[in-house]
Design a protein around this nucleic acid. Sequence first.
DNA 1: TCGCCTTATGAAACCGGTTTCATCAGGCGT
DNA 2: ACGCCTGATGAAACCGGTTTCATAAGGCGA
Lengths: 341, 341
Amino acid sequence: MREKKGPATMRDVAERAGVALTTVSRAFSDPDKLSPATLRRIADASAELHYTVNLSARSLRKRSAGMLLVLLPDIGNPFFSLVLKGIEEGAREGGRVLLIGDTGSDATLADAYAGQLDAGTVDGMILIDGRLPFAPNSPARARLLRAPVVALSERVDDPSIPFVGIDNRAAGREVAHFLADLGHRRLAHIAGPPGNGLTALRAQGFAEGARERGCDVVGVAEGDWSIDSGQAAAAAILSWPQRPTAVFAANDEMAIGAIHAFAAAGVSVPGGMSVVGFDDIDFAAVVSPALTTVRQPRFAMGRAAVDTVTARIEGRTSAERVRILPFQRVVRASAGPPSRG
Amino acid sequence: MREKKGPATMRDVAERAGVALTTVSRAFSDPDKLSPATLRRIADASAELHYTVNLSARSLRKRSAGMLLVLLPDIGNPFFSLVLKGIEEGAREGGRVLLIGDTGSDATLADAYAGQLDAGTVDGMILIDGRLPFAPNSPARARLLRAPVVALSERVDDPSIPFVGIDNRAAGREVAHFLADLGHRRLAHIAGPPGNGLTALRAQGFAEGARERGCDVVGVAEGDWSIDSGQAAAAAILSWPQRPTAVFAANDEMAIGAIHAFAAAGVSVPGGMSVVGFDDIDFAAVVSPALTTVRQPRFAMGRAAVDTVTARIEGRTSAERVRILPFQRVVRASAGPPSRG
DNA sequence: TCGCCTTATGAAACCGGTTTCATCAGGCGT
DNA sequence: ACGCCTGATGAAACCGGTTTCATAAGGCGA
């Protein structure tokens, strides 16, 4: 009786089925090449031994890992949830699973995760983080640029990396137009963290739209996408000498935080202050007042990104390197005409 | 000039440093065994070649993957975000990365992910899903029970699997006591989906606590943890012949959905209806009215789970198989005394 | 009947590391 | 001067698959 050492290997299956190791391997990779009888014997044998392939061994030889790396700055941000669902659906259809790296915007950590691409543990990478790992001009960065990588939501420095997202600038403009058309003249913006690409685009678009309608952006408060920072920004805005009548927050969490802070300070929304958010996360519809916002096609964005990176991995020349998806204005109760005064 | 085929291997580094392959391997695994001079030459050589170890090869030989699998039913649920942060912190300290599997409560999908444990791609597993993969009594299940696995938040069928979580039953009781002490007599519950372990415990605890204080639980509406289901449940509750004065929702999302639906139906919270949630997600503090809820130590739970599974992986006998962490009542504005009537 | 092509299968090389075992030089006690 | 031990290094086996190349058997046209 042989010593049992661990999970069954292909060799064990081959022995039991009375065929060569090679044949078992083929039974899993392309069964069409085998005679039905052999196939059947191998199927039985591997069932009896409860055989499962060792993915490390497979990926070592095939130089493919069956895994996609997703790098994002904060897994707690509800914006990502639907995006991830889209990515997951596409990954699964491509026979791959997801490795999710929460970088917390820490460049060192992002580099560590991205190293897996080099290490061969991962077939491709989806960057929702806006930052390309590794130092510019470093050899690691150079290799990254040749790997199957796609940027999602936020563009990255290098133009050779494909991108999937919406036109944030146009969306910012549209929010300004919307508020101006409601009658607002003095607007404010709660921006994302400086250095972030989305921050700049949404702020620029908003400023542009305001200018086009002859509105003043009386100030910009800086946030960091978090609920707390939205509250702090709202408090700051109330202390400004020239108080705006409407505020555009660069994401829904900050908008919801701001609404809370305004209410706590006795400023009603939308009566005393209109608030518009961005993203249309699930909570946007059920906060009070319900949030007027800009909906990003989150699931579709994830799906498009994973399709792009899968095409690259499989050597298909992806048609377009940049895919801009449509956004949509969602009008709810948190923005209304300004009160007279 | 040699043909360049891909990323540098250990062999390349060895050649360049003028040492044997073995020596390079040792330079990475236990550098103390090498002379400082050799170590230096290897370090230089691998820096020049931008060498990174191939993790598939390493894990094939070491029979360890440097990866932890986390199985959860819905990555979009904000409850998981902080839990994941805790898990990630611990995983990183143990030198492992996270593979996150969103099962969508789909058993087949969960099985597919769990197969990675068998396949040797993954060192251990954290189940936040409440369901043990694979059919009971199947050999795959049997192997799973011997693998480094821990259940988080919700217990699983098999008592041999370690568990980390809170005392949900006690928490449910405490909510009932709290509402009773505010003066409520007719209570309702918005439960989670049937079959879920948390659903049962929180509902039982709540019923128990109500009985202890002489309160009636006039009805239980069934939800599925989602915001939408909370809204639907609230609408249902308003149509009951005997209307309760306070509602305990089994999680914050349903509670927030319920508050929204109550408000939409003209029932003010807490004036016309008190609402208590569960989890204390980030949004709980900023919805209007701010949500009274039960805080779970989410980060600590994740951290405890990953420590338990790491101990198992590394062969340390973990002291306790079951770790119950403290919960905490968070009193905000959404629950108050009942209006007279 | 012979040669050629196709189909089914097997032997062996290979992927890139880790680990075991052997080798070799030098230090040291007697 | 000899044997023994220690520390540094290398050669080769190994992990569990995939892939290339070879081989054997069978079908078929000339």
